[in-house]
Design a protein around this nucleic acid. Sequence first.
DNA 1: TTTGATATACTCCGCCTGAGCATTAATCGA
DNA 2: TCGATTAATGCTCAGGCGGAGTATATCAAA
Lengths: 324, 324
Amino acid sequence: MSRPERARAPAELQPETSPGHGIAADLIAVLVAVTGGEPRVLTLQDARALPSGPFELAHRSLQSGLRAWVERQTHHPLGYVEQLYTFADRDRGLGSDQRVISISYLGLTREQPAAGDYEASWQSWYLYFPWEDQRLGVPAIIDDVLLPNLTAFAEAAPNRLLRQERLNRIAVTFGLDGKPWNEELVLQRYELLYEAGLIPEARRAKPELGPAPVPSRSMVLDHRRILATGIARLRAKIKYHPVVFELLPDTFTLLQLQRCVEALAGRLVHKQNFRRLVEQQQLVEETGQMSQDTRGRPAKLFRFRREILTERAIVGTKLPISRS
Amino acid sequence: MSRPERARAPAELQPETSPGHGIAADLIAVLVAVTGGEPRVLTLQDARALPSGPFELAHRSLQSGLRAWVERQTHHPLGYVEQLYTFADRDRGLGSDQRVISISYLGLTREQPAAGDYEASWQSWYLYFPWEDQRLGVPAIIDDVLLPNLTAFAEAAPNRLLRQERLNRIAVTFGLDGKPWNEELVLQRYELLYEAGLIPEARRAKPELGPAPVPSRSMVLDHRRILATGIARLRAKIKYHPVVFELLPDTFTLLQLQRCVEALAGRLVHKQNFRRLVEQQQLVEETGQMSQDTRGRPAKLFRFRREILTERAIVGTKLPISRS
DNA sequence: TTTGATATACTCCGCCTGAGCATTAATCGA
DNA sequence: TCGATTAATGCTCAGGCGGAGTATATCAAA
């Protein structure tokens, strides 16, 4: 979104396919659910790939193709679906003649599906981006590993101007020098780490460099990049569109709602202000029942007021995410 | 964006192509420039089509494909490019076997290019959406034509619930009953008119209905829909990302900047507040020179401070658009 | 010199937002 | 039964931003 041309991960070596002409289309899904206080994403291949499949002619549209395919695989309805990005860069592998267009989607689902076939599993997305979880404060990995390495990367710049530019980029994306942490810059942070050569994807073509210094789980091809795009999109979206409710059960307490938002945003929010906004926006209504949770004062159960989707302009709801 | 499945225009009748297998990919561009106080879009085929072309294997990526193709045709550099949406609905024409994936882009360009070959021309986008220009107040077409027809559409609903829903949708999208006009709902308004059967696209399959009651220029296939998507995206974008400057000359007065924003947003802004925000955000800097325009007090010339794109987080700038 | 048009400075007020304090209502362990 | 713990809930306050209005300055042309 920010820069016109993306720094793309070089392709993994793939077996040569028979040179065909024509273009194939793939669907790639970032499927998100929140369980156990963690935002999770559906993965395949030992948690190293996002689910993907060919777009078939039988499908009515791209979205219906994705829905059909996901629901067949997870046996769960897909709540909210949104297109992420389409790319067809030449360096994605698959030989040179055969060109693949990949259309990525973000999908929200309510429950942990019975991760059906294959080696499907739900993984916390902070497994792939440990520096993105700031709920318990700034993660140690940032000060211990990322910043030293990033600073070294900046110092290694060929000239003063570029050096300054890199330092500034580090400060902006990681919230240094008094700048605030911006949880939406997931993709920018990933790209910075990529360019600095700190993650495995950036070293695939250069095995002589040795292992990547940043301990975090990688993915096949550019799937981690697509995941970063999905996280960034979702973090931005929850602020002005009530999509969080697609991740929650039908009835929930306000604290559950808050924890869900916090899990996605990777940061804590001020409880009182959060409730104030949720209620004055009339996003929820009481069910009349109380939560049966054990400890603490029992909380009222709420349900999402679906009506507001039509009542109000579809754009314009907001959820607060505090800055400090 | 709002609703998962889009109500899509049925295909125009096309000459049958030879049934091929495989999928073709097309690029469609919404190219925008602002000249003479009007936001303009590049069109072909007697102003009835958006420029589009096949995505070729030679291109490095989708964006570079689009850039190359546009710059070859307009002989002008393309400032800002952003992907809009990808679709592959089955009912877009081109026969039944051949499936086309269309990837649409929004592009901003600085000057009116020497509309090179073919029958290319720049048209005010309000030619296609006259109801979207609210700079001189609410256009007559809304009260005279749209609202009566839309109300009739609502009244014709088969049951009370649906009727109420339609009325509410009309009120939300067109800012009735005290609700504010939201200039970003371009696509929602278009879809509403489409569903109400008030525009030609909705009547292509049903010639017995006669001419469409709403006087506005139509386009081939679903191009007007894509244009609506582009306008909506741009109107949303200018509020938090400094892309307007891609449409202005290198130096400009604050009034020029304001008029440009107003042209895009289709509404007027409060001059003093506009300047306050622009300056406190440090979006521009003085050139030291003055405008040579004749009438009125001469204005200072400014230039865009490109540095802020790196200085600040890429997200988070804002331009004001007043509500009344 | 007047008029018209624009640029520019300053003020005011209401609302939103971030932040903190205090109180209530339940469970659990000693 | 009491105190500790956990959570829900109510209330206040200050700063900032955004919308709107008033007033003044500066030019060209009639």
